[in-house]
Design a protein around this nucleic acid. Sequence first.
DNA 1: AAATCGGGGGA
DNA 2: TCCCCAGATTT
Length: 212
Amino acid sequence: MLNPQQSFVGPLLAWHEENGRHRLPWREPGRSAFEILIAEILLQRTTAASVSGAYLPIVARYPSPETVVAASPEAIERRIAPLGLAKRAEFIRRTSQQLIARHSGDVPRRYADLLELHGVGDYTARSVLIHAFDEDIAAVDTNVRRLISRFFDLPPDSEVLPHLADALAPSRRGSDFQHAMLDFAADVCTARTPQCETCPFGEHCRSSERAV
DNA sequence: AAATCGGGGGA
DNA sequence: TCCCCAGATTT
């Protein structure tokens, strides 16, 4: 019985290197913490494919909290409306106000400070820490929950799942690991018809014996 | 704890 | 048509 680093993390990172969605615009090196925060808010309950079309014009027009606050709320909402959940325009506006008032316009590096931002919950706060500040932790969204619960044969609502995901995050590769879990769950370990036949985990997946 | 927000895409 | 999507806020 291999340990999870050998049976899960290693193959997952290898799969990601070959098959990951590396061209998504918010993953480009050099993105500011604010641009990453905006991406994570736009990605809430919204497919990466959908956000990828709208992201570049938005961060080009609103690259900083100051530019958000200076703009009209209606103009921001018009750009977000095609993605659904249009109240996220107000989330972004209020969060930008908070960043200016309490953090000198910068994105804070502390989890507790991030959580206080309007529109930022546990997942988004962790995502910013992972992708903007290189923390080796994990963020459990619907994709990661599905992947981990299947691979380790745990109930999807298990409370150990976030702790397990954190423990699996490899040193200095938290961002790659998070992207790998998201991409693999979106492309192979999908919600409806997972591609178990071609899954690189094979029988290491503890759900592989059974219909998933 | 449950309701609500939401348009877009895949099966 | 139904289900799902890098969740969080409100009730």
